[in-house]
Design a protein around this nucleic acid. Structure first.
Lengths: 240, 240
DNA sequence: GACGTGTTAGACAATAGTGTCTAATTTTAC
DNA sequence: GTAAAATTAGACACTATTGTCTAACACGTC
């Protein structure tokens, strides 16, 4: 249950580094990485103890030292593992961005839900929010690659996707990257408070957040004459 | 320079708890709290050592134990200190919200800049982002009060302020609290990436972020006929 | 069954941190 | 100036943790 997303996406990325084991005992490496991710996320780098990780991974402490020479090596391996998986999931989700202008409101909302579910609210997302925040300054080089290929790239990629829709006349956008950043910000507007104390939004909260975000986004960037169901908007006429 | 905001707002909140000192040695308490805030922020709770705090506060370790019985007591005191100050600054800033509909775009942008500068980008803001994220789950009761009176209240308070403007016809808003949350989200849209690796935005980045946020906010919630400088919008007339 | 690889439990030294205690010193109040 | 209060440096016991080492063990292949 808790490791659902991890377990799901793990098989997709074939582990290429051949450690002391071939592939039969690869499961040890995986359980160590998973347990370490949980403990590091829960306790932070200095708060996490190797013994705790060993117990949670159902592995002896010595095994951890066999695979990863020292605590910091393990930490770096965990970070890289999570980041690679998170970035893969991010771009896999981005590839589901709607390209047809029909049902834009619903399609964008569905996309927003996929994005939050797959990338922001899962264990990897929580891990990254927490660890980048707390350990980011201590390991600048470590997170730099992820930052470049993850968060930084998402705006431009999403911006390009919005550009496509704009060229089809479905959106009126000046600065596509800005619109992308704002779209992401709006999606998170209702969820920030939930993230804050470590919780995960319910399905309903997710849908409401997506709906709210898309409505406002379209009011700002959608084609003119946006009919809102709540209050009958005054009829507008374009004069020249 | 670094403690500018802290030093500014500190005298405003009279310290009421009378520890072992009356008020002459109160400066010790303050330097301990400041140093502890920095170290806890940098290293997290378990990573921070009392010795490090003592050195940074230019105080002997024993003095810290005299004032605060143990590490956790000190931690809680620091958290409460920062939160109280942050909330005070937050509502002090909220009180500068524009109430005149003229020059709304500029006034809202200026307000957004004040908000980011005074509450989000200063040391206290960084401290809270980091510590609530990493230690929030360990001390649920500790942050609960702040959450109620800070982040949770800001939406409703800001929402009420937007409502005033809306009633004057300056804004077209259905859900005021939602609009407030989205305003905050938009203001942060361009800054998230900077927060991510612990940096502080420059004055110019701050202004651009505020300008972008307000423009989009007004496109979504502003009165109709929003003139954009880039592309001459068609003149619109409300019929009935 | 022998062998090699990987795993395990436990002991171990080394280090670092917490919290206490004491005696000397400084600061503050009167 | 004197006495009380606060501060300091240092030693101290205690605990937790890291990382190493060793001997026993599991498990497969040959």
């Amino acid at each position: 249950m808790k490791n659902h997303a991890m377990a799901l996406s793990r098989p997709s990325t074939a582990r290429k580094d051949t450690g002391p084991t071939q592939r039969g005992q690869c499961s040890k490496r995986v359980s160590i990485l998973d347990a370490a991710a949980n403990v590091f996320c829960r306790e932070g780098f200095s708060g996490a103890s190797i013994d705790e990780i060993a117990i949670e991974a159902c592995v002896s402490r010595q095994t951890i030292y066999n695979h990863y020479r020292e605590k910091e090596t393990l930490f770096v391996a965990v970070i890289e593992d999570v980041m690679e998986r998170a970035n893969a999931m991010l771009f896999s989700t981005l590839s589901t961005f709607p390209d047809k202008p029909d049902h834009l409101q619903q399609d964008l909302a569905d996309f927003a839900i996929r994005l939050t579910k797959n990338c922001l609210c899962n264990d990897d997302g929580k891990f990254l929010r927490r660890l980048v925040q707390s350990e980011g300054e201590r390991y600048p080089h470590l997170f730099e690659g992820w930052r470049q290929h993850g968060p930084c790239k998402i705006s431009t990629t999403l911006g390009a996707l919005f550009a496509k829709l704009a060229h089809k006349g479905a959106l009126r956008i000046d600065d596509f990257d800005l619109a992308a950043r704002q779209f992401l910000a709006l999606v998170n507007a209702d969820l920030q408070m939930i993230y804050l104390f470590g919780g995960k939004p319910t399905e309903e909260e997710l849908q409401t957040a997506a709906k709210n975000a898309v409505e406002t986004f379209l009011r700002a960037y959608g084609p003119r004459v946006q009919e809102t169901s709540s209050q009958p908007a005054p009829v507008l006429m374009a004069v020249s």
